[in-house]
């Protein structure tokens, strides 16, 4: 049913550190790699080797420039995938019950055999987290790698979402955000984790850690610089006489 659960036992989700993300897009590739050959329909590409390639992705990395009122602009890489909202509008709009939020862990999933591909859930999502697969005609979205995180056939270290496992910078964290004592919850509390578009009332589970303040640039960057200043600016002695004489000519 597309009625949202009043509460979930756990709130599994991601914490994304905007201070650490280097914008390498490795999470995008590993997400596509894992999810195109596991849970549900593959993530198709159209015209992959042609002039206008396009395809289904569950995770994409944007880059933004923030220009403060004073000081230097800052470049911030910004991975974005499903935020597994507590008040997920994509679930309640679904006419068939294909979209649902799990009571046990809060993961928002699509039952692809019930999806009619009407696209209304993608319309209702402010974050662009859902994409209608052009080959399969069903809605695709981040599953939080539901087929990895409980998979006992995988070594324990791999039982996290593919994007988290891959991130070379350690900018992605996975855990239970409903448990105030979990590592991810502590991280959010320490770093002032934030919601995207809180005014939409979706109550996202995933949190973003804001970039730490940049170091301030002091007047003197290099302590050796004063020692490297030119020593003799006015020529003296024979050269000084020569300089003056030549000026007079």
């Amino acid at each position: 049913m597309t009625q949202l659960p009043t509460s979930t036992e756990r709130k599994m989700g991601l914490v994304i550190d905007l201070d650490t993300c280097v914008g390498c897009h490795a999470c995008v590739i590993s997400c596509k790699g894992w999810n195109t050959e596991n849970y549900g329909a593959p993530l198709s590409d159209q015209d992959a080797y042609g002039a206008n390639p396009s395809g289904t992705f569950l995770n994409r990395v944007h880059s933004y420039e923030v220009q403060p009122a004073e000081g230097h602009a800052q470049l911030i890489h910004f991975p974005k995938s499903c935020l597994h909202c507590e008040d997920a509008p994509c679930v309640t709009v679904c006419p068939t019950g294909a979209s649902y939020k799990r009571v046990e862990d809060g993961i928002v999933l699509v039952n692809e055999s019930d999806c009619i591909g009407c696209g209304l859930c993608a319309w209702s999502c402010p974050y662009g987290a859902r994409e209608l697969d052009q080959a399969e005609g069903v809605m695709k979205k981040c599953t939080l790698c539901v087929d990895r995180i409980y998979n006992e056939n995988l070594p324990e270290v791999d039982r996290v979402p593919s994007c988290v496992r891959t991130c070379p910078a350690g900018a992605r964290h996975f855990g239970d955000l409903g448990d105030p004592d979990s590592d991810v919850s502590k991280l959010v509390a320490d770093r002032g984790g934030m919601d995207l578009m809180p005014e939409m009332g979706t109550k996202p589970v995933n949190k973003y850690l804001p970039p730490r303040p940049k170091d301030t640039v002091e007047d003197q960057i290099d302590i050796l610089a004063p020692l490297l200043a030119p020593v003799a600016e006015e020529p003296k002695g024979f050269l000084g006489w020569l300089d003056k004489t030549l000026e007079k000519l």
């Binding site: 905007l18 914008g23 944007h62 880059s63 933004y64 420039e65 923030v66 220009q67 403060p68 009122a69 602009a73 800052q74 470049l75 911030i76 910004f78 402010p126 934030m194 919601d195 995207l196 578009m197 809180p198 005014e199 973003y208 804001p210 970039p211």
Partner: peptide
């Protein structure tokens, strides 16, 4: 509000 970065300055889509 979309990026949560609005309080830090003006945000521009760079890439």
């Amino acid at each position: 509000t979309a990026t949560g970065l609005g309080a830090r300055g003006s945000v521009r889509a760079f890439e």
